[in-house]
């Protein structure tokens, strides 16, 4: 029997993978992908809780759709920034991008 707990465990695992990717990866593109993983983990969580607790109302689903929309827009913007960064500096390695340093 599939319970809410199962979904939450998958969601948590997915989120942790994403978090690890954000912290450990050096490539800006991979970090972006990791952020997408974290967003999807959140979506999974939302939909699961919505279906298990109150399936009559679509609150959770609607928020998930919002997250997907905003995530798409954000990725579009972030990829554009990464592209410019590559054009200007010839790299997307965030170790080398430290202009905000003291």
């Amino acid at each position: 029997m599939l319970t809410l707990m199962h979904f939450q465990i998958v969601s948590a695992a997915l989120f942790s993978v994403g978090l690890y990717g954000v912290l450990a990866r050096r490539s800006a593109v991979l970090i972006l992908m990791s952020i997408e993983l974290m967003l999807n983990a959140v979506n999974l969580n939302l939909i699961a809780i919505a279906s298990f607790t109150d399936p009559e109302r679509f609150t959770g689903f609607i928020i998930a759709i919002f997250v997907i929309t905003v995530g798409a827009a954000e990725v579009g913007l972030a990829l554009a920034i990464v592209l410019r960064m590559f054009r200007n500096r010839g790299t997307v390695n965030i170790d080398e991008i430290e202009l905000m340093k003291w």
Binding site: L19, V22, L23, A24, I31, I94, D95, I97, E98, L99, M100, K101, W102
Partner: peptide, 17 residues
């Protein structure tokens, strides 16, 4: 104190986490 401003993204992300 300014040395905490490393400019490295993952440092900031780590602190956020």
């Amino acid at each position: 104190l300014r040395h905490h401003v490393t400019g490295l993204m993952y440092n900031y992300a780590f602190v956020m986490v």
